[in-house]
Simulated assay, not measured.
Amino acid sequence: MKRLLIITALLALLLPVQAVGTDAKKQYSSPRRYPAEIECAINRDIQKADSLVKAGKPDEALTFYKKSLKSKDSLYNRITTSQMEEILSLYNMDKLTLQKEQRRNMFHQICLSISVIIIFALLLFNIHIYRSRKRLQKDEKEMRRLTAIAEEANEIKSRFLTTISYNIRIPLNNVVGFSQLMTEDANLSEDEKREYSGIIQSNSAELIRLVNNILDLSRLEANMMKFQLQNCNVQEWCNELPCLVQMRSEGSIHLELVADTGNAIIHTDVSRLTQLVSGMLLYPVECKRTRIVNMQLTYNPETQAINCRIENSPLTDPAFSSQKESISHRINLLFFEHFNGSYRVEKSGDNPIIYFTYPTLTT
């Protein structure tokens, strides 16, 4: 019965553990005492209480039980506080370690970012160097090509000047020579004077034509030629061309013209176009030999252009080949290209064929 009362009292004392913790701290919470010493003291009190219970002194045993319970509560609080402090210390250490790792990771990320930026900058620099080198190589290649073209052009120009000087010198010498002869020789007959005058006139005309061709070529190459542009009906222009050729050739050139151009209209310098086309149909030098020239003009609605084909042209006859004919071909090419057309000479047997195109406005 006494043991039952003691156990009941102990259970009642276990409930208000926090309320009785203050007295236990005053007795056992000395900063110099360690948990092991406190635990030994509690065990001694419990042993004394057990001895008093066996001796039949429950009231005295109850006091030791209360004292031991208070001591245990104080010990548990102290252990809990110590563990909490240790946990807090570990938390702070982990927090500091985490912050250190975060700073280290941030430093690594910064270093990595800087490395990536440097690598990217180096890559861009290498690409720029590569492109610059390619551009320099391309410019150098283009410069070599232009230099070769310039040297070739200079050589062609030198040959051209040499040849053209010879072609100019001959008629000029004839004009000067026969003029002096007519002036200084008073014994010339009327027939001789008429003959010399004819020679002077023909050479003067040849000289003027040659100089005009050279000037036209220079203007076309410099894109400084002035044109008097107007609309021209191709079919009407073709109707007048055979009579013009017949008159200028004095009947030696017979033009067989086939024109199927409909109502095609071109915008051009009619006088200049007529001069160039008639130059393809007439003899480049004085010749009375009868010649048949075939000319065909057609309208191509797909390309919106007039296509022309000239066969047996005196301008392409090898018998009349000279520097003057080369100048005429060059002038024709530049003229048609100026108006977005084309001009070419294709070899076909003994006498090449002339082809040229000219764009139309309306049909």
Rank of each mutant, 00 (worst) to 15 (best):
R3P: 14
L5F: 15
L10S: 14
L13Q: 10
P16I: 04
K26S: 12
P31R: 04
R33F: 11
P35G: 10
E39A: 11
C40W: 07
A41F: 05
L52D: 05
K57A: 09
D59Y: 13
E60H: 05
A61E: 06
T63H: 07
F64E: 03
D73T: 12
Y76D: 12
R78K: 15
T81S: 14
I87G: 05
L88E: 11
N92Y: 06
D94H: 06
Q99K: 09
K100N: 08
I117N: 05
F120C: 09
Y130M: 08
R131G: 01
D139S: 07
K141T: 11
R144N: 09
R144H: 10
E152S: 10
A153T: 09
N154V: 12
F160I: 02
F160N: 03
L161V: 12
S165R: 01
I168Y: 01
S179L: 04
N187T: 12
N187C: 07
L188F: 01
D191S: 11
E195G: 14
G198S: 09
S202L: 05
S202G: 00
E206H: 08
R209H: 08
L210W: 00
L210C: 00
V211E: 00
I214H: 00
R219K: 12
E221A: 14
N223P: 01
N223K: 11
K226H: 07
L229W: 10
L229E: 03
N231T: 13
N231C: 05
P242A: 03
P242H: 03
C243M: 13
G251D: 02
L255M: 03
E256T: 03
L257E: 10
D260E: 14
N263L: 02
A264Q: 05
I265L: 12
I265D: 09
T268N: 08
D269F: 03
T274G: 12
T274D: 15
V277D: 05
S278D: 03
M280F: 07
L281C: 00
L282K: 02
E286Q: 12
R291D: 06
V293Y: 01
M295I: 05
L297D: 01
Y299F: 15
T303G: 14
I306G: 04
I306W: 09
E311M: 06
E311N: 04
N312R: 11
S313L: 07
L315I: 15
D317F: 09
D317V: 09
E325W: 02
I327V: 15
S328Y: 13
L333S: 11
L334F: 04
H338E: 15
S342N: 14
R344T: 10
V345K: 03
S348V: 04
S348I: 04
P352R: 02
I353W: 01
Y355H: 05
Y358A: 02
T360Y: 00
